[in-house]
Design a protein around this nucleic acid. Sequence first.
DNA 1: GTAAATAGGTCAATAATGTTGACATATAAA
DNA 2: TTTATATGTCAACATTATTGACCTATTTAC
Lengths: 147, 147
Amino acid sequence: MVDLKRQSELREAIELLYFAYRAFTARADHILEHHGLGRAHHRILYFVGRHPDMAIHTLLDTLKISKQALNAPLRRLVAEGLVSVETATHDHRTKLLRLTKTGHALESQLTTSQTEQLAEVFSKVGRDAEKDWRQVMARLADSTKTL
Amino acid sequence: MVDLKRQSELREAIELLYFAYRAFTARADHILEHHGLGRAHHRILYFVGRHPDMAIHTLLDTLKISKQALNAPLRRLVAEGLVSVETATHDHRTKLLRLTKTGHALESQLTTSQTEQLAEVFSKVGRDAEKDWRQVMARLADSTKTL
DNA sequence: GTAAATAGGTCAATAATGTTGACATATAAA
DNA sequence: TTTATATGTCAACATTATTGACCTATTTAC
């Protein structure tokens, strides 16, 4: 009886993850649509924005996708002038990625829409609940390694 | 200065969602691979398992995809004997979906792998943190409607 | 100095997942 | 009887991903 209740709670947690994540990505997806871009482009913009002068292999390690999968969306972002590529001075094999002014503008719009959404939720639940949420999410993110 | 720090924290929260969700789906994806199935099949199995005798339009409303997108994966699950379809007695237009014994076995395996992952995290952070996590996720899931 | 490792680019074939449009049937409700 | 609902399916297309193959540079190791 007790165990059944717990199982139901854990199932609810599964659904919370599914629906929360969907709600979280919806706004950015909507903005991206206006630019004819997808989530792949968003992830590139986000991580390059977060870590300027990121090398391509670092981006691949972060996203955990093949270089072939990265190729098309990155090439497009470069072609459209949202991302700039520069050869590293220390190692002429590696190329460093940066957001251009236009790229930064879009990244900022996307990130702001998501941070605002999160800030609104956090402001309602308070700082302690936010901390607890972060703790759970961090452990969950880490649980890949325990696989 | 204060605002900059907060912005950094909110960006961290974005990443927590991304990495936690990825870690969360990884195990199920791994199991599904052995059966040659994908996430689309998983979602069908999950929700039909959660709500036996679910009508197809209810499933479509839940997943928020087109009937054409549902068609192929559902047809396959039925063909492989994981999901059964039955015409409703009260309305002969609607069809009710159920997991077969085999379907239930797979769904159970998938759900158990995820509930165990969540239970492990929850056990480490304690019940209060779990409650806070649920509160944040529920509000985040709700924030679709505020769009 | 040559071989091997690293960083990156690109083509092809294939797959999963999604979309919109079009058109079909069967049943229920107005 | 008309209309709305529930479902099914075909086609064309887009996005995101995979593996395999093959290519050029550049750096590092022996």
